[in-house]
Simulated assay, not measured.
Amino acid sequence: MLDLKGRVSIYQPEQEGLIFPYEPSFESVEEERRHRKERLVGACRAFAQQGFDYGFAGHLTVRDPERPELYWTNPMAIHFDKVKMSNLILVDHEGNVIEGTHAVNRAGFVLHANVHEAHPDIIAMCHAHTVYGTAYAALGRPIEPITQDACAFFEDHVIIGDEAGAVAVENHAGSNVATAFKGVKAAIHQNHGLLTASRHSIEAAAFWFIALERCCQQQLAIAAAGIPPIYIREDRARYSREHVGSEYIGWLHFQTIWDQLVQDCPDMFD
């Protein structure tokens, strides 16, 4: 067991005075709301960079800090690359748009509202129709501990087989997804795709979605090689997950993406 000396992660520097990302603190709920909305927009732009767009499919959500029964999400039929502060919408668990002028994605509302309502501790959630995640989901298999990257999800994701392949447009359709997210950060919805959730931040939810898609690509590539992989021992997989798979590490990874977006995409804040 490593002695972190009061730090959240081994990756935090012990030496003081070095430039390093630190988690924010807020002086008002308005400040925290703006922060969450900005990072939600950033997560959408990151998904655009990753090529996660597929028509109007794909939805990211984050709770409002003052009214946790409501959540902010990307507007229906707006490309991830065009999501900005001014077109975000605030939605309740019934699918009503409380703030904003755009419609809500019906499937997104059904899936995300059920998860947010069933798990008050979940702050953010992500879903998109990606190439490798959707392909891997057709196998109905978990991510195997065959790379260090994959260990971030070891015993921290589930397979959802119920109603596999049926589009979630009826309110009850999200109930199985909500049940599955008890105590895990990711789910593979069989014949559908990937979902991630975070009890920490939208940044963590977004990065772990990007990471899970990458793991699916890796696992499909390994399978295509036709050579049985060498599995990482369970104790080593858990050790790696502890140090590279936490909510904090997901947040920390996203900071590099955020800094790049701030420089390259100033229109996010319009």
Rank of each mutant, 00 (worst) to 15 (best):
T256Y: 09
E16Q: 15
W208A: 02
N171P: 02
A204W: 01
Q260E: 14
R199D: 06
N105T: 03
T196S: 11
I230V: 15
T196W: 03
V62T: 15
R236T: 08
Y11L: 13
A173D: 15
R67L: 06
A186W: 06
Q15S: 10
A178Q: 08
R36Y: 13
I159A: 04
T196F: 08
I78S: 01
G226W: 09
A46S: 09
A77M: 13
L70H: 14
A137Q: 10
D270N: 14
E99Q: 15
G250N: 04
F181A: 03
A237Q: 04
P120Q: 11
R7T: 03
K84Y: 00
F154V: 03
V41Y: 01
A237N: 04
W251Y: 09
K84W: 00
F207M: 10
F26G: 00
T256I: 02
Y11D: 04
A137R: 01
N96Y: 04
H253Y: 14
P75G: 08
G42D: 02
H253D: 02
G17Y: 01
Q50N: 10
L212N: 03
E30R: 12
E234Y: 01
A124F: 02
A225V: 07
Y231F: 07
A77F: 03
A135S: 14
I249Q: 12
V167F: 14
A107T: 14
E170V: 08
V8K: 12
G55L: 07
V83N: 06
A197D: 04
G55V: 09
F209R: 06
A48I: 03
I227C: 02
C151D: 00
A113P: 13
H112F: 10
V83I: 13
A206G: 05
P228D: 12
V83Y: 03
G245T: 05
R141Q: 15
T130Q: 10
Q190W: 06
S246L: 01
A186L: 08
G133N: 05
A77H: 07
I19M: 13
V29W: 06
V91Q: 10
D267F: 13
A204F: 01
A166V: 14
G183A: 03
L18A: 04
M268G: 07
I10F: 09
F20A: 10
I188W: 06
N114Q: 12
A128Q: 04
L88V: 08
F109H: 15
P266A: 10
C151L: 01
E16D: 14
I188T: 02
V158K: 06
N74M: 05
E30D: 13
V97K: 12
L220K: 03
S201N: 02
Y71K: 04
P68R: 15
